[in-house]
Computed example of a mutant assay.
Amino acid sequence: MTNVAGRRPESAALANLGMLCLSGLSARQLARCLPPLIRGALAADPIGLFWCDAAGAMQDAWVENPGFLSSQVLHSGNIWRQQNPDAWPRFADNVLAGPVAGVLLPYQNDGFWGSDFYKGSYATIGVRHVMDAVVHDGCRPHGCFLIMRSASAGAFLPDDVDLARDIAELVLPCFLADSQPPPSSRRYPGGLAIVASDGDITYCDRAAHQSLWTLARAGDRPMIDDVNDDVEKLLRRFCGEDVDLARSLGHHEVRRFTRWGNFALRYDRTDHGQVVISFDQLLPFAAHVAMMIARLDLSPRRVIACWLLVRGLTRKEIAWTMNLSAETVNDHLDQVFAALGVNTAVAAMRHFSD
């Protein structure tokens, strides 16, 4: 793992990201959790993840904006690249470039920004600048992640490219992780939708739309298959029967196990006849802890010390693992306890377990 402790102000965010990527989940199962932590290290607007085979051919993708990966956008991108072979690299060529970040940057110019493809894809989600980083193990690529910025956020600088390389190294374990998720018992909020008594959708946040997007692509169908990503159609397709059931039962829950992770969809009828749908992703304890630690605003070494403590290591083992003195570890843990509002290791463990 990249040595991030104490090197730059964004090192704490990289430490948090590293802990999450060691939780045993695959990159697909962490797709929703990774972007907030990546943004903590590198300023970005939408973030996407892409997967490839050993030959560099794209196999799958996920982007925070659900409509961006519609079949219409993907088809138009393929057509544009065929008509303009020198204007943008093919995904395979891009990924097979190796351990490189920022390889898309030279292709972004007035010709690209003026193209119909740009206007129908990146421009629709407010993106002006695009950078990616290849995730590789030294022998073969496994995919890449896409960092996108609006015009107001500014272009990417050389330091941003270096950070993207660090992030690519940190996320490698989750690209290599088994696709079968470990036992999961903790809930990570995945959005909220409300269906009125007359069946109209009165509210659906972006996180819920993301959940519906993943359910629509949870099988073995090719990513580029034509899927209608209209949120009302998706919600009726995957939740319609359960909404009707909730109207008669009052509430119930459905579990869905997919390659994007395990989800719990909870349906609750209100006194006014509405049905509130909560989309929660089920995470294993290690990932749950990593997400909780990320909220504490700790220094990089305290992030790691806290993670090791919750994973069951003694103070002596933490000192040996981190190559620190016992006194330094005690100081780090005291600061962690202060951030948690507790006084002992037992209380800290209880905090993360509750």
Rank of each mutant, 00 (worst) to 15 (best):
Met1Asn: 05
Ala5Tyr: 07
Arg28Met: 10
Gln29Asn: 09
Arg32Cys: 06
Pro36Leu: 04
Ala43Ser: 10
Pro46Ala: 14
Phe50Cys: 04
Asp53Glu: 13
Gly56Ile: 02
Trp62Asn: 00
Trp62Gly: 00
Asn65Tyr: 00
Asn65Met: 04
Leu69Gly: 01
Ser71Thr: 12
Leu74Lys: 05
Gly77His: 10
Arg90Asn: 10
Ala92Asp: 08
Asp93His: 13
Ala97Pro: 00
Val100Glu: 06
Pro106Ala: 14
Tyr107Thr: 10
Asn109Ile: 04
Asp116Met: 04
Ala123Asp: 14
Ile125Cys: 15
Gly126Glu: 14
Val135Ser: 08
Cys139Met: 04
Gly143Pro: 01
Gly143Gln: 01
Phe145Val: 07
Ala151Trp: 14
Ala151Gln: 15
Gly154Leu: 00
Leu163Tyr: 02
Ile167Met: 13
Tyr188Gln: 13
Asp205Pro: 13
Ala216Leu: 01
Asp226Asn: 10
Asn228Thr: 10
Asp229Pro: 03
Asp229Ala: 05
Asp229Ser: 05
Leu234Ile: 03
Leu235His: 04
Arg236Glu: 14
Cys239Gly: 09
Asp242Phe: 14
Arg247Gly: 13
Phe257His: 06
Thr258Glu: 07
Asn262Thr: 11
Ala264Leu: 15
Val275Ser: 04
Leu282Met: 12
Arg302Lys: 13
Arg302Thr: 09
Ala305Arg: 06
Gly312Gln: 09
Gly312Met: 07
Leu313Glu: 02
Ile318Cys: 04
Trp320Arg: 05
Thr321Gln: 09
Asn323Met: 10
Ala345Trp: 02
Ala345Glu: 09
